[in-house]
């Protein structure tokens, strides 16, 4: 028990003062920079229809495989060049940010909700539910996610609903484990015992007392999971079983540019760099967040 008490002691002051956390976060310059980059990507995605210089699916047959503007043969019309169908890469990348972030957020939210709910229930009630869930989790952890995604996508063809399902299939397990562990610890904590003694209902104890205390580590995890999901989505799109082809997506663009990678390097390189940069920023931001919100994990 002593362990959980010390954890609570550590957690209490930080979780208590929001301004203090903010100060900590702002002090981490790398995390701030990363956060700004992430925001820029989000803005690019949200504003894509307004700021994209071209329709991302518009084909210009007279401008096929135009190199980026700084190369000879490049043009200021197509800043980052065009692909093998004469579509503007910059515009496609902006729209690609949109779908990447949208899917990432959707999947993270779904897995966060499902995982937290199940994890809290398992941690609080224990018993047969916990036992069954731990079997399910063991099974899912041993299951190669890509096979599930491939099987579903091969049958239905690329579509967003199936894609979200495939990405969320196993992603909730991480949240489940964190939520369950934290609830297990909190269940014995004084404040919960006090609430129980005062006759608080189970839903109140779970949602009103415990949940606020376990949110910080979940937020950190959600951020880091976002990075993984963006890569997973891009991988599926790269294999042609992710985002439908009518929606520009980075993974698809890398796949499209693959055959050209020697003669027209920019087609596959830029979207790859975009994935790298976004994921890198999300990771850095998530780690900064972790240092602030989840001191147990502080390095």
């Amino acid at each position: 028990m002593s362990q959980s008490v010390t954890e609570d002691e550590i957690l209490a002051p930080v979780a208590g003062t929001a301004p203090g956390m903010l100060r900590l976060l702002v002090g981490n310059r790398v995390a701030v920079a990363a956060g700004i980059v992430v925001l820029l990507f989000v803005a690019a995605g949200l504003l894509a229809p307004a700021i994209a210089p071209h329709d991302p699916n518009l084909q210009d047959p007279s401008a096929i495989r135009v190199p980026p503007f700084w190369q000879s043969g490049g043009s200021s019309t197509y800043l980052l060049g065009t692909d093998s169908l004469g579509r503007d890469l910059l515009s496609r990348m902006l729209y690609g940010a949109r779908i990447s972030i949208l899917l990432g957020v959707a999947v993270v939210l779904i897995t966060l909700l499902v995982g937290t709910a199940l994890g809290m229930a398992a941690g609080y009630f224990r018993g047969w539910f916990d036992a069954v869930m731990s079997r399910v989790v063991d099974t899912l952890l041993a299951f190669p996610f890509l096979i599930f995604a491939l099987a579903i996508m091969a049958a239905t063809g690329p579509n967003l609903v199936a894609l979200v399902l495939a990405l969320a299939f196993k992603g909730w397990v991480d949240f489940y484990r964190v939520a369950r562990g934290d609830v297990l610890a909190a269940r014995e904590a004084d404040y919960v015992a006090a609430a129980r003694g005062l006759g608080a209902s189970t839903p109140y104890i779970l949602l009103g007392e415990i949940l606020p205390n376990i949110i910080p580590p979940l937020i950190v995890l959600a951020t880091l999971r976002m990075a993984t999901i963006i890569i997973a989505e891009a991988s599926l799109s790269f294999l042609g079983i992710g985002v439908p082809p009518s929606i520009p997506a980075w993974g698809t663009m890398v796949s499209d540019g693959r055959a050209d990678v020697v003669s027209a390097w920019w087609i596959a390189t830029f979207p790859g760099l975009a994935i790298l940069l976004l994921v890198l920023s999300v990771n850095l931001f998530g780690e900064g967040l972790r240092d602030v919100l989840d001191p147990r994990m502080r390095r």
Binding site: N57, L58, P245
Partner: peptide, 18 residues
């Protein structure tokens, strides 16, 4: 995708499904 792109000029909105 190329066909769908040209068809748009004739008022046909074709969505490609793979």
């Amino acid at each position: 995708e190329a066909i769908a792109g040209v068809m748009a000029g004739a008022g046909v909105r074709a969505e490609v499904r793979v």
